[in-house]
Write a protein that binds this DNA or RNA. Structure first.
Length: 222
DNA sequence: AAATGATCATTA
DNA sequence: TAATGATCATTT
């Protein structure tokens, strides 16, 4: 699919696939549907990238760099409740001197997001799952304040060498959790004494209450 | 039932 | 190894 030339074109495309099943979308894209997502956890996200014309790849950029827009699929149930947290970015564990909320990756990533809800209950086969109404979001002042607060708390702990004491309960709307191939993966961090050590890579995730509030605000539901 | 920690595929 | 795309599956 061609890269969308404008924000409006991207939105139009996303609206065009709303209401379609993943089976219909995959068929017209010529993409094979996996039986389950166990070994294809990112499949829905990649399918949406493909049909919306995102530039594929693993570069640390928005999916639509020229538009400054990040694409996120959002698994929801029939009641429009998000079923999973939303990965935002890998958490840097080093090089944090001088980084502030204003300059951090999380803020950049979340500056403008095209959310595409997908109704994804476990009991419904992948091919029959339906794409919901997409919406383009930028954080409100309130949302940004919450994100900034959590980001600061988590980053402070990282800087103080407390990474390994951080768990999913920290943060009201943003959490820090493992983001790795497995529990043996390692990346460099700093301990309490400021000495380098190897630890599990982590990522920032949006908690379900936060994405649920976005759905409410934009789609006026529940 | 919800939430946390663990894990899977691919690319570079 | 680290970035992208996330969901799985065990624990609470």
């Amino acid at each position: 699919m061609e890269i969308p030339a404008s924000e409006q074109e991207l939105l139009n495309r996303a609206q065009d696939i709303a209401g379609l099943t993943l089976g219909e979308i995959a068929l017209s894209a010529g993409i094979k549907i996996p039986k389950d997502l166990t070994k294809n956890k990112g499949w829905i996200g990649l399918l949406l990238e493909h049909v919306l014309g995102a530039s594929a790849g693993s570069r640390p950029e928005p999916d639509f760099p020229h538009l400054g827009i990040e694409l996120k699929s959002l698994p929801i149930n029939e009641q429009a409740k998000p079923l999973e947290t939303t990965f935002v970015s890998v958490a840097p564990l080093t090089g944090l001197v001088g980084v502030t909320w204003q300059t951090c990756y999380v803020k950049k990533k979340l500056a403008k997001v095209l959310w595409v809800p997908v109704i994804t209950p476990k009991e419904v086969p992948i091919s029959e799952r339906i794409v919901g109404t997409p919406f383009l979001w930028s954080p409100s002042a309130e949302e940004e304040a919450l994100l900034a607060q959590d980001w600061q708390e988590l980053t402070d702990m990282i800087v103080l060498g407390e990474v390994e004491n951080i768990h999913g309960k920290h943060g009201q709307v943003l959490q820090l959790r493992p983001k790795a191939a497995n529990s043996k993966a390692k990346t460099q961090g700093f301990d309490r004494n400021g000495k380098p050590f190897m630890t599990l890579p982590r990522g920032f995730y949006l908690k379900i209450n936060f994405t649920q509030a976005l759905l409410h605000r934009y789609l006026r539901i529940n």
